[in-house]
Design a binder for these strands. Structure first.
Lengths: 155, 155
DNA sequence: TTTTATGCAAACCCTTTGCATCACA
DNA sequence: TGTGATGCAAAGGGTTTGCATAAAA
């Protein structure tokens, strides 16, 4: 925990930014809810507990900044609100998502299956890949078994 | 062209909807600009030429409807506006995107590289895949060569 | 003739911005 | 102490909705 805050402080300093109370609190919320895929509003709600006076605008500015310095990744599942994931410190590691159409839950796949494809894109299309995103939409295991128990088919 | 309109008419009828002048005009715009990845606003602008009285709300409603009946695919590249792609009639064919961070242009990869991964997701995670999305972000071939000519590195 | 669809405008939601004040470094 | 950060409220952009009217089937 503390070392991650230190890393952020260092990265902020490198880019001419300050580590404020609000930014530190935001990092703590993100770390405590790793993989929660929170929206800015979600983060704000949690922050209100430790930092009651924080403003929503600050949360947006902080998340944007953390995204610029690669601490978090801003992802968009098409439901209208951006979500923010802590990046793993391992730069090469990407992850993929499984988004359930029944319950809306987002699960992660902690593997990067796309390295071969990235080189293929570079080779065949002359496109230099910086990053990628892979999402699967479908029905998650628990919704499927719930549907099976209820004896009905699922969309 | 005409047979695609007929297919839409059939699908609309099946789901209890009508083929209106506005919906037909929207289809024509989509067909004429296949792969343009247009926003609702883009579609609206084009529609104004053949259908000057159409309202933006109708465009949104039409695109949403076409998306529900699988005629178009609503995609979101994270720039704030949803984009709409005509689906290929071949249901099994998905396509992937290469999004250039220099010029913002979206190119397509007309291959589905993910069938093997879909079965792996089903097998290893118990997640029933309905659809998937794969986007690469990076620098497109023309931006890279432009940058090379200008003798500078690109981000 | 009965539904469903339309156009308009207002409402909505998420996000960004202007500005005076505050607090890290 | 000086620059960057904050909070608030207002503005912004994309999208949706209520409602009276119009037009498919």
């Amino acid at each position: 925990m503390q070392e991650r805050i230190e890393e952020v402080k260092r990265k902020l300093a490198e880019t001419g930014h300050k580590l404020t109370m609000q930014r530190e609190a935001t990092m703590r919320v993100l770390i405590e809810h790793e993989e929660a895929h929170m929206t800015a509003e979600d983060v704000y709600m949690h922050l209100k507990q430790t930092c009651p006076d924080i403003g929503l605008a600050t949360v947006y500015r902080t998340l944007e900044l953390l995204s610029e310095i690669q601490i978090v990744e801003k992802v968009n599942f098409g439901d209208g609100a951006a979500r923010f994931d802590l990046r793993s410190s391992d730069r090469a590691h990407h992850h993929h998502h499984m988004i359930c159409r029944e319950c809306g839950q987002v699960e992660e796949i902690h593997e990067d299956w796309l390295l071969a494809m990235e080189s293929r894109v570079e080779r065949e299309y002359g496109f230099t890949v910086i990053d990628h995103r892979l999402d699967f939409q479908g029905i998650c295991a628990s919704c499927r078994s719930a549907a099976a128990k209820a004896g009905r088919a699922v969309s």
